[in-house]
Simulated assay, not measured.
Amino acid sequence: MSDRAERKRTSTEPLERLVGRADASPPPMRRPAAVSMGAVLVVLRVLGGAIWLLLLGTNWRTVIAEELDVTTVDADTLNASLAFIVVPGIVVLVVELVLAWLIFLGVNWARILVMIFATLSISGSFVTWWVGDQELHLDFTLVTLSLDILVMLALSSRAARAYARRPRLKRPPR
């Protein structure tokens, strides 16, 4: 029998495999490159978001003047409106950083959550482009879009899925 045929799963699981031995520990599994790259890409996405927030903060007065066509804005209003965008942005970036670490450790729900966020980001970019509100530029739009696509490719791979869903040793109670 070939190696590929031995690895192929059957439609039903044998009883011995389902019941298994309670004292058998799962074999150790090396972290696949797809998981490591997925975590690195999420960190790069966080760095891109931090740079975007920094650039937005430094150019906020110009952004407000161009978008709202207002020449004079009170400084307190300007700072409050900037904080309304930057503070949630920082929270999201910190959450994404924590998710990147959990992905690196092999936590399945973190992998799935990041893939959902990437899907929503990709879909949002497409919809805004389709409606005509946003042009895709090389500055940040295409960079973040390509990072989201690469995150999806890395974290949806078979190796990443197998690593995140691997059996783990149960820790004894303290």
Rank of each mutant, 00 (worst) to 15 (best):
A33E: 09
A24K: 12
R111L: 04
I112E: 00
A80P: 12
L138N: 13
H137M: 07
E16T: 04
T71N: 11
I103V: 14
R171N: 12
L93P: 14
E16R: 08
S125L: 07
G89N: 02
I51W: 09
A162Q: 02
R161E: 02
V92K: 08
S36M: 06
N108K: 05
E67K: 11
V131P: 10
V42T: 13
D69W: 15
L82M: 06
P27Q: 05
T62K: 00
V151I: 13
L93F: 14
P32V: 01
I116D: 03
S11K: 10
P172G: 12
R45T: 02
I90P: 13
R158E: 14
L53P: 11
Q134I: 14
P167R: 02
V63W: 06
G57H: 06
L99H: 02
L105H: 05
D76L: 13
K170Q: 15
F126Q: 01
A22P: 15
W60Q: 09
R161F: 09
V98S: 01
E135C: 10
P14N: 03
R166N: 09
V98I: 08
G106I: 00
T119I: 02
V42H: 02
S146V: 06
S81I: 09
L44M: 08
I122F: 01
S11I: 10
H137W: 09
L105S: 08
I149W: 10
D69L: 15
V70Q: 10
L44D: 02
S123M: 06
L54Q: 12
L147I: 00
R174I: 15
L147A: 00
F140L: 03
G106E: 00
K8R: 15
L82E: 03
S125N: 03
G38A: 05
